[in-house]
Amino acid sequence: MKGSIVLLGLSMLAACTSVTGVNSRQDGHLSVTSRARWDIVSWNRIRSAGFKEAQAYCGKQHKEMHAVEVHSEGLRGVTTQTVEVIFDCI
């Protein structure tokens, strides 16, 4: 029973954010943007989702992710929160 509750909780947390695909930027870096689907999601969870996507992208290329910049926008409970991670695979 406890295992089912934990699994349900993790599934709900994963559904709290959406992440774009990796995009190439004009300056040669890559970027990914993560957004909160609900107002109750913390900035750290949104940031973490973006970093995980960037790390997975670089991992598929057998490289490591190097964060160049992180931009955030929005206010929890007031406006939609977004985090853009700009990175390179080295």
Rank of each mutant, 00 (worst) to 15 (best):
M1S: 10
M1Q: 12
M1E: 08
M1T: 15
M1L: 12
K2E: 12
K2A: 10
K2R: 15
G3D: 10
G3P: 05
S4N: 14
S4L: 11
I5G: 04
I5M: 15
L7W: 06
L7D: 06
L8T: 05
G9F: 13
G9L: 11
G9I: 11
L10E: 10
L10I: 07
S11E: 05
S11A: 09
M12S: 04
M12G: 04
L13R: 02
A14M: 05
A15W: 14
A15P: 02
A15L: 12
C16R: 09
C16V: 05
C16Q: 11
S18R: 14
S18G: 08
G21W: 04
G21L: 08
G21Q: 11
V22T: 02
V22H: 01
V22S: 01
N23E: 12
S24C: 08
S24E: 13
R25V: 03
Q26V: 06
D27M: 07
D27V: 03
D27L: 02
D27K: 09
G28R: 08
H29C: 10
H29E: 13
L30R: 13
L30Q: 10
L30W: 08
S31K: 12
V32Y: 04
V32S: 00
V32H: 03
T33M: 10
T33P: 09
S34M: 08
R35T: 09
R35N: 08
R35K: 14
A36H: 05
R37A: 14
R37N: 15
R37M: 15
W38H: 05
D39Y: 11
D39I: 07
D39L: 07
I40K: 15
I40P: 03
I40Q: 13
I40W: 15
V41D: 00
V41F: 02
W43L: 14
W43A: 09
N44V: 01
N44F: 02
R45H: 13
R45C: 09
R45K: 12
I46H: 00
R47Q: 05
S48Q: 10
S48L: 07
S48A: 11
A49N: 00
A54Q: 15
A54V: 14
A54E: 13
Q55M: 15
Q55G: 10
Q55A: 13
A56N: 13
A56P: 01
A56F: 14
C58H: 04
C58F: 05
G59M: 10
K60F: 10
Q61H: 12
H62W: 06
K63A: 07
K63C: 03
E64T: 11
M65T: 03
H66D: 08
V68S: 04
V70F: 09
H71A: 05
H71C: 06
H71Q: 07
S72L: 00
S72H: 04
E73I: 07
E73R: 15
G74Q: 04
G74K: 02
G74W: 01
G74T: 02
L75M: 07
L75C: 01
L75T: 11
R76E: 01
R76K: 14
R76F: 00
G77E: 06
G77C: 04
T79Y: 02
T80I: 06
T80L: 09
Q81G: 09
T82H: 12
E84I: 13
E84W: 03
I86V: 10
I86P: 00
F87G: 01
D88P: 07
C89W: 07
I90D: 10
I90M: 09
I90P: 12
